[in-house]
Design a protein around this nucleic acid. Structure first.
Length: 102
DNA sequence: AATGCCTCCCGTCAGGTCCA
DNA sequence: TGGACCTGACGGGAGGCATT
């Protein structure tokens, strides 16, 4: 796999995310209210903790979601090959019946 | 060796759905 | 109705492969 663990590690430790780096306007945690007039404020400890918890849960949810999707796609591909075989068998059977006028 | 393209996996955000 | 959860979309990193 192409995972070094660095990304996961940095995300888990609350470093600046890739998204924040490429989209500076979104650098503020969603659930931290910033007061406009007095400039940027530090997120409270509790807000940061809640954000990290939310990101961690969403990270796990996304992994589970992708795993389910992979399994479903595998199921569909298996189903396709089964139905294709079935279709070929039925076609062969029809051809046989036509040739022998059954 | 350098480069470009493709594919896979990941983390994050945003928006939708569900349920207490 | 607010919070928890799910999932599509997006963009980045890394590996593999062909081409130069």
């Amino acid at each position: 796999m192409a995972v070094t663990g660095d990304e996961t590690e940095s995300a888990a430790t609350g470093d600046v995310s890739a998204y924040q780096l490429r989209n500076p306007s979104s650098c503020l945690p969603q659930d931290v209210v910033m007061a406009g007039v007095h400039g940027p404020q530090q997120p409270t400890e509790d807000a940061s903790r809640r954000r990290e918890l939310r990101l961690m849960k969403n990270r796990e949810a996304a992994k589970a979601c992708r795993q389910r999707k992979r399994e479903y796609m595998n199921y569909l591909e298996t189903r396709i090959s089964i139905l294709e075989k079935e279709n070929m068998t039925l076609k062969a059977k029809m051809q046989y019946q036509n040739v022998h006028s059954i």
